[in-house]
Structure formats: C-alpha cells, structure tokens
Amino acid sequence: MDKKIDVLSKAPGPEEYLALRAAAGLSPRDVDGARIAMDNSIFAVTLRDSSQQLIGMGRVIGDGGCFYQIVDIAVRPDYQGHGYGKRIMTELMDYLNTHGQKGAFVSLIADIPADSLYKKFGFEYTAPNSVGMYKKL
C-alpha cells in the first residue's frame, strides 16, 4: 500500500463521488441524489493520493440505532489490488465497532468477487434464511 495515501473521515463532493463510481464500474446516480446522499452519510471514509485525487471511498448509512448499511465501497481501477478496499472496510468497521449500537444489524450488498473481502470482516450470506431484495425508483 502506498504510504502517500491520505485517509479522511469525510464524504467526497457529489461530482467526485459520481466520477469515482463511474471509474470503478458502479451504476450511475443522479447528481442531486448524490448531494443529498453525501450530506446524510452516518460515516464516510475517503482515500486520496498525494495530489488529493479521490482514489477510493466507502460509507455507512442507516438509522444510527438498529440498522446500518455499508455502501459505496469503490476504488479507482488503477489503484485496485493494493489493499485499499480492505483499508476502507477496516475504517468503516472500526467506526461501527466503536459507535454502533450493541445488537444493531449491519448489512451490505456484495458484488462478486468482492464478497470474499466482506467475509474477512465477518459478513455472512443471508440465504437460505433470507435473501436481499431491491427496487429501483
């Protein structure tokens, strides 16, 4: 891992967020929605290189009491494979372990093959007892 990477506990601006999502191959989002989302994060972590370019991020969202969700784990392709996803997850889990409510439910939706990363942090598949579902507006 590059020692020149800054780890910040701050959500990126909406335009940076959308650019990182696109670069990392995640689905597009609306800029107005992105602005609201960044402002309403419970916790966010960003990784920036020596020129302060956003190279990775992750967020915790939820109600802050019973339910938390990990979202937006993204690393620019030219920085992937160097442990930055693991660093992001470590920061998010450290936050949750320190500030999360005892007995709270922490969920995420894992893209394959990223599920192997999340397993290292104790996440388990919900099936066959339950399955993830979604509806896009």
Rank of each mutant, 00 (worst) to 15 (best):
Q101D: 02
L117D: 04
D111L: 13
V71E: 13
R48T: 07
G83C: 05
Q53M: 06
D111N: 11
Y125K: 08
I36G: 00
V45S: 08
D111I: 11
K102I: 13
K102F: 08
S107M: 04
Y134I: 03
A23V: 01
K3G: 02
G103H: 11
G25C: 04
D30F: 02
L18I: 15
I112W: 05
A19P: 01
G56H: 09
D49M: 12
I73A: 11
K120W: 01
M38E: 14
A114Y: 08
S41C: 14
D115K: 13
V75Q: 09
H99G: 00
D30T: 05
Y68D: 01
D32I: 00
P128C: 03
I36P: 00
L117S: 04
D94L: 02
E91V: 10
V75K: 07
K136I: 12
A23Q: 13
I73C: 15
D6K: 15
L108P: 05
A19S: 15
H82S: 10
G33M: 06
R48E: 05
R59S: 11
S116I: 12
D72E: 14
S116F: 13
A19E: 15
D63I: 01
E16D: 15
Q53C: 09
I73Q: 09
K10I: 14
G65W: 04
Q53F: 05
I109M: 13
A110Y: 03
L47M: 13
I42Q: 07
F105G: 01
Q80H: 02
S107G: 06
N97E: 14
Q52S: 15
P14R: 13
G56W: 10
R59Y: 11
E16N: 13
I112T: 15
K4L: 12
Y95E: 00
A11C: 12
Y17C: 07
G83E: 07
V7D: 03
Y134F: 14
R35K: 15
L47T: 09
A22Q: 14
G100M: 02
A104C: 12
F123N: 00
L20N: 07
P28K: 11
P77E: 10
Y125W: 03
Y84Q: 10
D72L: 06
F43K: 11
A104T: 02
Y79T: 01
G81C: 05
R48Y: 04
F67H: 09
L26E: 02
S116N: 13
Y84D: 05
Y134E: 12
T90L: 03
G85E: 07
T126I: 12
A34C: 08
E15F: 05
F43I: 08
V71S: 12
I88L: 08
P14E: 14
A23P: 02
A104G: 08
F123C: 01
G58R: 07
F67A: 08
I109G: 08
I61M: 13
